[in-house]
Design a protein around this nucleic acid. Structure first.
Lengths: 341, 341
DNA sequence: TTGTAGGCGTTATCAA
DNA sequence: TTGATAACGCCTACAA
């Protein structure tokens, strides 16, 4: 046996035909007779031939690969989005390369450039928390490199975004708390430099407004929404009189707060009702189970990938689009105050 | 501006030098004068040049990419392993391509062949539940394609495995239950065609043996260890007299069972103590919090990747290795029966 | 239906 | 130190 992996030339030689015929046969071209096709395919199998995609990609200037950049793969939301992406890509004959920015702009830039130079056909990205300016992204876009943003919006001309309606979801959640009888509702908010969290805060305020409830700035706690932030917020919250509800911009912080409050003997939802955001797995299991928002993770992956495919095909590139998925409010025990009897 | 992406030839032309010099300069070869190097690098920046990795890979016959195949990316354990893999790969200058087999052998084969033909430099794989014969894997191995198995062992000559000591972890968990006063311990076991679950069952039995407790076959429940399997097992368990402990081969099934039993008024751990496996995020949050085993996910990713790098470098390939990570028993409330006062 | 020839962008070898 | 040339493996006009 020769050393290197077998090539179309090996097949051609041993069949005494030309490599171009082999190439055609293996891509099932109509311009090869059935007979020779069969011979070629058989010989290929015999030699254990596998097409060298690197060479093929170089020649065709396509990688049949899309890149995905997320803050962290270990977050449930993102891993579910990726499942959707992978599934769609797989069906379309694409491979998926994944990288995590760890919420730093430095790694985000690195990944983008790696992807670009390995000539992926396009990129799906949920930008890092540090990404507040978008020049690095625009540069690629202007080179005609297809990029789709998901979950965390990028408000730049020509960008296609796939999002859920964060405003509406937050409005609905807050309204739900109000309907359950809450009057003094605190909001755990995320970094306000991110559009995402601005939208969620907006939804909260709009709902209060609708019901004639005063919006008090000191009822809005800004943090990074980690579990420990939730705990800190809970402590802070106890210093306010009469809080009877919390709308948190994510589940993790809500759970951190609930744990602390429970340990202090506060009853949930009777004393304080809770609503979170993201539908983490734990939220169903914790006691009481947490009311939350389904962010349509898998669907988001599917939608984003489909849009990317369109953009790759049409090469039109520059058309700005916005795909809004409808979030779903999942009502659980943490907010059910009305007796169901 | 020309249409295509700029190449070394574009740089060469506009500087009136040869492309080979440009190539050398951009790989920082010592065989280019500082002066021209500077000129080239500047021009490259000016043109927005990015090396075409596809062409480079073709030429050097390396992709600087490793492939990862896991059952599903959305499982916490795997996404954490992948974090470890990514981190290590990133440091070594490698990219990571990820695919999920969804626990089917068909997709596993597909992925393997995609990876092979895109010439990834090696593969890390946790085999699917359906994978009980290993010919497809051996074939690649025999072609000199580096493959490392993690978490789910592959007992085939020449295979390198990175595992935790499932036997020991199970032994320790069961022993812990015994030490907490359990005498009639049920084992929720996984598919016995997988070595993994055989090891866990073995550890359970060995611990019973050590303490002179009879091993009863009808105390071992085999299932796929989904949440609903746990619930079913709980029902089954109630028909046995005197069960006072459960060692489950994963957390998910344990939690399914605990939920059901709690709804029936059974106290955990006082009536029945529980120990699970995998340290899912929910396990810390559920009430009572679940005693479990830390499978060293991130470390496993790191170890597997390091071994793969070795194998890629040494080309020795055929050396069988087994890396055993030490599992950690995490004791929580679901198994603490002795008063801590 | 098949063969010929050239090139995708890079790197490696050799010569200058 | 630089340039010329060939080659990696595949694909695709074009010609036969």
């Amino acid at each position: 046996m020769k050393k290197g992996k077998p090539t179309i030339h090996d097949i051609a030689r041993s069949l005494e035909i030309d490599s171009s015929t082999v190439s055609r046969a293996l891509s099932d071209s109509a311009r090869v007779s059935k007979k020779t096709k069969v011979r070629i395919v058989e010989k290929a199998k015999e030699l254990g031939y596998q097409r060298n995609m690197i060479a093929s990609n170089l020649r065709t200037n396509k990688s049949n690969t899309i890149g995905v950049i997320v803050p962290r793969i270990s977050r449930q939301f993102f891993s579910r989005v990726i499942s959707g992406i992978e599934e769609t890509a797989y069906k379309g004959g694409y491979d998926v390369v994944i990288g995590q920015s760890l919420d730093t702009i430095e790694r985000e830039k690195n990944l983008l450039q790696t992807f670009y130079s390995s000539r992926v056909d396009g990129v799906l990205i949920s930008i890092s928390m540090e990404t507040t300016s978008f020049e690095h992204l625009e540069a690629y876009k202007n080179h005609g490199f297809p990029i789709i943003f998901f979950d965390r919006p990028c408000n730049v001309a020509g960008c296609t975004n796939v999002l859920i309606d964060d405003f509406k979801a937050s409005f609905d959640s807050t309204e739900h708390l109000i309907n359950e009888g809450c009057k003094d509702i605190v909001h755990f908010s995320g970094p306000q430099n991110l559009e995402l969290y601005r939208q969620r805060a907006k939804g909260y305020m709009e709902a209060l407004k609708k019901y004639g409830i005063e919006i008090r700035d000191h009822y809005i706690f800004e943090s990074n929404l980690m579990q420990e932030d939730g705990e800190a917020s809970a402590k802070k919250l106890l210093k306010l009189a009469n809080v009877d509800g919390v709308f948190s911009a994510n589940d993790v912080a809500a759970i951190g707060a609930m744990k602390y409050l429970k340990s202090k003997g506060i009853r949930i939802p009777d004393d304080i009702a809770f609503a979170g955001f993201s539908n983490e797995l734990i939220s169903e299991v914790i006691e009481p189970s947490l009311t939350t928002v389904n962010q349509r993770d898998v669907e988001m992956g599917i939608a984003a990938t489909s849009l990317l495919f369109e953009q790759i095909k049409n090469k039109s590139g520059k058309i700005q689009q916005k795909e809004m998925l409808d979030p779903e409010l999942i009502i659980r025990n943490s907010s059910k105050r009305k007796s169901t009897i």
